[in-house]
Design a protein around this nucleic acid. Structure first.
Lengths: 215, 215
DNA sequence: GTCAAGTCTGATGCTTCTATCAGTTCAGAG
DNA sequence: CTCTGAACTGATAGAAGCATCAGACTTGAC
């Protein structure tokens, strides 16, 4: 067991060894993200992945045991970045309804500014909504807060989460087929708020508020 | 060009040659459907596909040029069957809102009775919603009818279609993680009707009506 | 400067998949 | 019955990908 396959990134590693290792790992993940966003496939050869990462073939095995491990890491990395982008913009918003509306509209914007993220979100995002880590739990909490305060109306929060997440990914799917404008994001936000139980007028107002810029 | 790779199935072929050919083709498609539903992957070897179809290895190439062609045909075949199942139950319903509610609830039922169909719908269905053939256009027409009659409220029917389709697939996704009961189907139907602009009370009533049996 | 530990590298043997093709079987026509 | 064309079959050669490993390189400690 000559290497440390299982060690996660140490963010600010003290020594240069670990930093080099982390850089190499990130190069591999970045290559996998590219391939995933461009082709939607995970069947690229390890040789091609290594080439894209500008790394020797054998190096792959210093970091991942199988190609699936790498692609899993790439998806996780992407969704983590997506979550942090949303968080950075919505953290100041108290009303859960406004958070959902802003998140939906921002995601559509992201499709233009960060196509790689939204491609991967569209292609691989759904299965992660119900995962115990990632964005799902955060959205679930917002749904429960909104339900407790009487703002949202539904029985099972998990079903509501699936509906919201599925609709969002449906929007990205449509956007991939025909480029959508901001109005489509507003419409989707409004529909989602109505779905969660808000009155139509309120749903419309919240969905057309000025939207903060992404960082 | 010794064979007729491009010939679609002739439903009631006059001669036995064509019937045999159609049977073999269906056996290959059925094998691909199995594999797709079981593993979600399209990476099975042609040898394994041929084995499952109980057909010689070389026979594969009499019917498809590439493995992708076969899996495309398998997905198309599955979604066609799904559409016909829904049609057979909802064709007597006039109100588009009731059609959507019934379709959603029936789809969740299908997950128990026809797991293969719903697995493939969950894994590969989304990209087909916006396709020019298949279920999408039918649902789109219902949305436009409902909008014209003032029953539904939204701007762009395509965005509405993406929202409905995405939410439905989100429901299947959740169902794959934890088995859902019929109440979840009712909740999702109700949320979708609210999303389309129906008043909450009406959405609830329509979503809890008795549901016809599947054939 | 030298040494030890860890990382990077690509050539190599091995396995697996693919696509082809010549021969066999099957169905209908004469 | 025989003949013709089409579909079926599986052995085979060629291509491609995978996992390994021994050597080279990098870093930090002494």
């Amino acid at each position: 067991m000559p290497n440390k396959l299982d060690t996660p990134d140490s963010p600010a590693s003290a020594n240069r060894f670990e930093r080099r290792r982390a850089r190499t790992r990130q190069a591999l993940i970045a290559a996998a993200r590219q391939i995933l966003a461009e082709t939607g496939e995970t069947s690229a050869s390890i040789q091609e992945i290594a080439d894209r990462a500008d790394v020797g073939f054998g190096t792959f095995y210093n970091h991942f045991e199988t190609k699936n491990d790498l692609f899993d890491a790439a998806v996780g990395d992407t969704l983590e970045e997506y979550g942090q982008l949303l968080d950075s913009v919505t953290e100041g918003i108290d009303d859960p309804a406004a958070v959902f509306a802003a998140s939906v509209r921002l995601t559509l914007r992201l499709a233009a500014s960060h196509p790689e993220i939204t491609q991967i979100l569209r292609l691989r995002g759904l299965p992660h909504i119900n995962a115990p880590t990632g964005l799902g739990p955060r959205a679930l909490r917002d749904l429960e807060v909104g339900k407790a305060s009487g703002r949202f109306t539904f029985e099972d929060p998990l079903v509501a989460l699936s509906a919201v997440g599925g609709a969002l990914i449906g929007l990205l799917q449509l956007n991939a087929a025909r480029d959508l404008d901001a109005a489509a994001g507003e419409q989707m936000a409004e529909m989602i708020l109505r779905m969660l139980g808000l009155p139509a007028g309120e749903a419309h107002e919240i969905s057309t508020r000025p939207l903060p810029e992404l960082p």
